[in-house]
Design a protein around this nucleic acid. Structure first.
Lengths: 212, 212
DNA sequence: AATTGATTCCATCATTTGATGGATAACCAA
DNA sequence: TTGGTTATCCATCAAATGATGGAATCAATT
């Protein structure tokens, strides 16, 4: 028996999918407590009871949104791993930054959701957490910070986390940062990529040359 | 006539100060919408009406918390500017990271509040925003990224923002990241500092040597 | 057309939440 | 003491919110 989330994916025009999409947008903008079920229903243009009919309780819907996000990020990381496979470290880092930035700038709600999910005290522990741990080791090895997936030192994981967070921050913080930097959207995206590379490349390539 | 915030500061044991402190703690943990006035009142051990008597509406209290935080960060940045004045760039960066990390790890609510304040879509524009713009230029010049406070290129501001965000992230994300890295508190703080320096020092010192 | 199951909306409920009025108590100056 | 100001709590309200039951509608199958 397929779950509600699987049903929504199979039929992107279905009511389940439309509700999930609206919920994702609003939860991403205002956070869990900042969104009411009525707001989501209104966004879709339906009654609240229809929403409950498809997704049950508010929290269940939120968890579905997080699961959906988790799978999306998971797929993106897999894609990046494929893209950078066998390339030299500098290229790997550049590609990873470019692809991740493009994705999150194209889906700012994803970036916001990750922030909310990561930093809420009353965190609803979700599959996102599991994915983070799972991928950290892979990325650390791919970035040349560790040679064995099973034994990644905390320093290496911390470095990957720093990169990861920087990308999310610039994507999720566009509303605040872009006016401060006084740039239009394309320029902001470009400056962010350049900044991340400026900051990260020297550190990681130095690390790589040390290990040679 | 002193404002409520000034009164609270003048008398740290006063009811106004106790409410402000509890509000700051809870808003920092759960965000604006995740906190009810009753939660704050219960934290202090008083009735809700007493809370309203001292601070008026919930949003007024929240803005007072943000103003308080803004002043605290402002003072910390002034302190850092004094500490690093005249020192070489590497030392400036190291000291800034150490002092900012120590402060935010000692006051995790501050880090959380800044995150909430920065990344909420329904941002309550506060003095924090003004402070960010004001300090960015100063820090950029202090870090050797620009020679003139009045004309800091967006790239330089973006680099300062990246550093700034990294510190806040590691402080606010301790609950999530520390279990992932499997470290105790002192070790986590130490790894974070080491990571930030590892990532940031090469980039900024390369920049400085270029400009010589 | 009739049956059946899935879907949608209307009306409504119980709780929670922000906020207020009024009574009471504490403090303090004259 | 007295008078007035300040501070605190109790009771309560109106609105918002999550959630549900049931009637009505739609779609597919026979």
């Amino acid at each position: 028996m397929p779950t509600a989330l699987e049903k929504a994916r199979q039929a992107p025009d279905s009511m389940k999918a439309r509700i999930l999409s609206a919920a994702r947008k609003l939860f991403g903008e205002y956070g869990y407590h900042g969104v009411t079920t009525r707001m989501i229903a209104q966004e879709v243009g339906i009654d609240i009871s229809t929403l409950h009919y498809h997704w049950g309780e508010k929290q269940d819907l939120y968890e579905a949104v997080l699961t959906d996000l988790s799978d999306e990020i998971h797929a993106k990381l897999i894609e990046i791993e494929g893209l950078v496979h066998g390339k030299p470290l500098e290229v790997r880092l550049e590609v990873a930054i470019d692809v991740m930035c493009d994705h999150l700038f194209g889906n700012p709600d994803s970036a916001h959701l990750m922030l909310f999910s990561h930093f809420s005290k009353n965190r609803i522990t979700s599959e996102l957490d599991a994915h983070i741990s799972r991928h950290l080791a892979n990325i650390a090895v791919a970035m040349g910070l560790a040679s064995d997936k099973a034994h990644v030192p905390p320093q290496a994981n911390a470095r990957v986390l720093a990169v990861w967070n920087s990308v999310i921050n610039f994507a999720a913080g566009e509303d605040l940062f872009r006016p401060i930097l006084d740039l239009d959207r394309p320029a902001y995206l470009s400056v962010v990529k350049e900044t991340l590379k400026f900051i990260l490349l020297p550190a990681f390539t130095r690390q790589a040359s040390r290990e040679k």
